[in-house]
């Protein structure tokens, strides 16, 4: 067991969240979801089942969407974690946030943080996704309010907005 690491109880975790380093005392049994919400007060990340069955708690780890309810916080150490609070750039909403707000894609809003992050991961990889790509990328996130219609339209609008911005810059 020489090179094995054994972790019990609480320990000081070094987590990099939304570009900032944080030190928090977290229990080894705590999911990333619990540490974000309960130790770091980042309550923008929601939860709907804690079993990986609804998508509500989606965050990005090294840019990839994962369910924060199924990842131990200790496994997130040393990795880049992005939550909804980290989407805005210098106080300006991300184009996805703006489009979701403008089109009324957030009704009750509870699933929206997770969906925004799933959508961001898609756009980071695929700047010009087809509708089917968007549907596929968001198929791990349930929404009970919108029928996904305005959500998909908002992703499409954000795509256009980013293209216009980049066109202007170019």
């Amino acid at each position: 067991m020489s090179t094995s690491e054994t972790i019990t109880g609480k320990r000081l975790m070094r987590l990099r969240v939304n570009g900032e380093p944080h030190e928090v005392a977290g229990h080894v049994t705590h999911s990333l979801l619990e540490v974000l919400r309960e130790e770091m007060a980042l309550t923008g990340t929601k939860h709907g089942c804690e079993l990986g069955e609804c998508g509500t708690c989606t965050v990005l780890v090294d840019g990839e969407p994962v369910y924060s309810c199924l990842m131990l916080a200790v496994e997130a150490e040393g990795r880049e974690i992005t939550t909804v609070e980290g989407l805005a750039l210098q106080g300006r909403p991300h184009p996805l946030q703006r489009a979701f707000s403008d089109l009324g894609a957030a009704q009750c809003g509870y699933c929206i943080p997770g969906i925004l992050l799933a959508a961001k991961a898609l756009l980071d990889k695929q700047p010009n996704p087809a509708r089917a790509d968007i549907e596929e990328a968001l198929s791990g996130n349930l929404c009970r309010c919108t029928g996904y219609t305005k959500i998909i339209e908002a992703v499409e609008q954000a795509v256009r907005e980013v293209q216009v911005q980049e066109g202007t810059r170019a």
Binding site: G52, G55, P65, V66, Y67, A137, G140
Partner: peptide
Amino acid sequence: STLQLRNA
């Protein structure tokens, strides 16, 4: 399952 789950 889903993309999120397959990522882990």
